[in-house]
Amino acid sequence: MLLHVVNRSPATSRVYQQALSGMSPDDRLLLIEDGVQGALPQLVRYYAGLEGRLFALKEDLESRGLLGHCDASVQVVDVDGFVDLTEEAERTVSWY
């Protein structure tokens, strides 16, 4: 199982497509930095099919005023949770 990390918003960047095309059915995806916009209900559709495997970084949501605005299907993790995710995955692949 790999952890993919995306730091761009699907509203403006196609990087999310690259991440998705490299994902296996059990891989996980973490949204950080501007990527957390992808956790909004209006944009989360770009990540359809990742229910249970889609995460967003709490600190980056918080600093952008988006913490209370995430779709219910997204699991919010803090930076310690980010570390957990990298421990649990064999490797981390970053898409930026």
Binding site: L2, S21, G22, M23, S24, D27, R91, V93, S94, W95, Y96
Partner: peptide, 17 residues
Amino acid sequence: SPPALARVFAEHRLVLT
């Protein structure tokens, strides 16, 4: 194709983007 891409990721010890 995408399924083959995912397999390639799994075959390598280290991935750099």
